[in-house]
């Protein structure tokens, strides 16, 4: 399977129809999720009333924040061990998109937090803190790649950092949990709340699927752009050599 996907030509052919399909399906899923979330499901007073409807963006964003960093770490690992160029292209494409969804998660969490917790930023919430540090890991990754002078060096440095970050994530998560467990009062309302009713869960899952499909589609498009950019750079270099 790896060698199949490692071939840029096959990837271009596959993504040629797969990416638009992802976009179409994601539009359907996201709009269904939003419609259900904003107009159909009853509001939940325990979760702060109408503001809980932000959940249909917030929870998918939180899922994608974690999933995208995992994908980044896996792509980096694959590149580091097998040196498939496509894995590096994937890592490069994932980082800014992952950072965007992570920022979206932080922003919606903050918006949700203001009316329920009474503050824009809750230092005692382990999830907010973990996602914040995830955001920093993404930023560091992108800054490091941008600072390297050739794409080969950017790939190597990025892969090392992504893997160092990935093995630290469990430790960071654990320490943040410990930190917040010491400070948190039992009365703080958490986003989990009581058991979630199916009336919320189904649109939420569909919304999460939609976001994932959109993310996948955008990653594919971004990878296609990067493949072509590298091809252009190669052609330019060949042209220069002919002089």
């Amino acid at each position: 399977m790896w060698s199949y996907f490692a071939n840029p030509h096959k990837f271009l052919r596959l993504s040629d129809w797969l990416a638009p399909l992802f976009y179409a399906l994601s539009a359907v899923c996201i709009f269904y999720g939003l419609w259900q979330g904003l107009w159909v499901v009853p509001k939940d007073e325990y979760q702060g009333g109408d503001i809980m409807r932000v959940m249909f963006v917030h929870v998918p964003a939180a899922w994608l924040a974690m999933a995208s960093y995992s994908a980044l770490a896996i792509a980096s690992f694959v590149w580091f061990v097998w040196r498939h160029e496509l894995a590096d292209i994937a890592a490069k494409a994932i980082a800014p998109l992952g950072a965007t969804w992570t920022a979206l998660c932080l922003a919606t969490g903050s918006i949700w937090g203001k009316p329920t917790w009474g503050t824009w930023w809750q230092w005692d919430d382990p999830r907010m803190m973990s996602v914040l540090f995830l955001f920093f890991l993404f930023l560091g990754y992108m800054a490091l790649r941008a600072a390297m002078d050739t794409r080969q060096k950017a790939a190597r440095a990025g892969a090392i950092l992504a893997m160092v970050g990935a093995i630290n994530v469990p430790l960071i998560k654990f320490s943040v949990d410990l930190f917040t467990s010491l400070h948190q009062d039992a009365s703080v309302i958490t986003a989990d709340g009581p058991k979630m009713a199916a009336v919320y869960l189904t649109p939420l899952l569909i919304s999460a699927l939609g976001h994932s499909l959109l993310f996948g589609g955008l990653v594919m498009t971004s990878m296609r752009t990067e493949i072509r950019e590298r091809r252009i750079a190669r052609l330019r270099a060949r042209e220069l050599e002919a002089f």
Binding site: L139, A143, G165, N168, F179
Partner: peptide
């Protein structure tokens, strides 16, 4: 990682900050 980067100090801080978290908390 930033040994060959000009103004590497800023980059070091950004890279190392999340890795400092567990130590600072414990």
């Amino acid at each position: 990682l930033s040994a060959t980067v000009r103004r590497g100090g800023l980059l070091i801080s950004l890279i190392a900050l999340p890795l400092f978290v567990p130590t600072a908390i414990f």
